[in-house]
C-alpha cells in the first residue's frame, strides 16, 4: 500500500495505482478525455493534470502514486492550465457537445485561436480500443506533430477491420472521421449512420454494426446530406 495526500487528505492505495485512481477513491473528480478504465492509460490530452508538491504539473491518469506524495487537483495553476487546454480543444472541435460542456464547467467563454474543424482531438482512444480490446490493429496514428492523424494503412479500407464500430463507440468527441459506407478511405468503414437509412429492411435484418451494407440497401438508399460526417481534411500530408 502507498500512502499519499490529495488536497491535504490522506489516502492509501495499492502499489502501482495512478494518481487518478487515488483521487477517485476519495471521490475527487478530475476531468479526463483520453482515459478509459478498460484501456491502457495514454496521457495525451493532459486535461487531468494535477500539481505536485514540487510545483510540477503531471497527468494524473499516468503518474504512479508514490509514498508521501502531495497532490493538488484544483490549484489555481491547474485550473488555468485546464482552461487553456479546453480552449485549444475547442478550437479544433468546436461542435463537440462533450467539449462544450467541459468549457461551460471550466468557465471557458471564448476561443481566441482561429477555429479549424478537425472533428478529432487525437486522444487515441479509438486506436487503443481497436488494438487492445478488439485485437484488430486496423487503425493507428500516421505522420507526427501537427500533421498527425488517425487512419488505416494507406487510407484504404483495412482488411484487419472487422467493422465492430468500437472506435465510434468510444470516441469522446464523436461524429468523427466516419464517412459512411462506400467511402474508399473510411477509418473502419462500418458505420451506417446511427439512424439507419433502410428502416423497413433494417427491422428484418438487424444489420446495424454487423453485416452492414451487405444487402446493399443502405449503399444505394436515400441519404440526407447531413446523415454522415464529412471527411477529415485540410491537413498537409507527408509524402
Amino acid at each position: 500500500m502507498t500512502k499519499l495526500y490529495i488536497n491535504g487528505i490522506e489516502v492509501e492505495i495499492e502499489q502501482g495505482a495512478s494518481l487518478l485512481e487515488a483521487a477517485q477513491q476519495l471521490g475527487i473528480e478530475i476531468p479526463t478525455l483520453c482515459f478509459h478504465p478498460g484501456l491502457s492509460a495514454y496521457g495525451a490530452c493532459r486535461l487531468c493534470v494535477v500539481e505536485l508538491g514540487d510545483g510540477r504539473l503531471v497527468s494524473a491518469c499516468t503518474y504512479p502514486a508514490q509514498e508521501g506524495l502531495r497532490v493538488r487537483t484544483h490549484s489555481p495553476r491547474v485550473r488555468r492550465a485546464r482552461r487553456m487546454l479546453i480552449e485549444l480543444l475547442l478550437s479544433i472541435c468546436p461542435s463537440s457537445k462533450r467539449l462544450q460542456d467541459l468549457a461551460a464547467e471550466h468557465q471557458v467563454e471564448r476561443v481566441r485561436f482561429a477555429v479549424r474543424d478537425e472533428r478529432c482531438i487525437l486522444c487515441g482512444l479509438c486506436v487503443r480500443m481497436c488494438a487492445e480490446q478488439m485485437m484488430a490493429h486496423a487503425i493507428g496514428f500516421v505522420n507526427r506533430g501537427y500533421r498527425r492523424r488517425i487512419t488505416t494503412p494507406f487510407d484504404l479500407r483495412s482488411d484487419a477491420c472487422r467493422r465492430c464500430g468500437g472506435c465510434l463507440y468510444i470516441c469522446p468527441v464523436c461524429e468523427v472521421r466516419c464517412q459512411g459506407v462506400g467511402a474508399p478511405s473510411a477509418v473502419c468503414g462500418s458505420c451506417t449512420p446511427p439512424a439507419p437509412t433502410c428502416p423497413p429492411v433494417y427491422e428484418d435484418l438487424a444489420c446495424y454494426m454487423g453485416a452492414t451494407g451487405e444487402c446493399g440497401t443502405c449503399v444505394r438508399g436515400p441519404r440526407t446530406p447531413d446523415s454522415h460526417s464529412p471527411t477529415v481534411a485540410g491537413r498537409r500530408e507527408k509524402v
Partner: peptide
C-alpha cells in the same frame, strides 16, 4: 506485425518516403 504499425513508422520518421 500489424500493417498499420509499419505505416505509422513509415510516416513518422523523416528518412522514409512513400513516393
Amino acid at each position: 506485425i500489424p500493417l498499420i504499425d509499419l505505416y505509422s513508422i513509415a510516416t513518422f520518421y523523416n528518412c522514409f518516403s512513400l513516393l
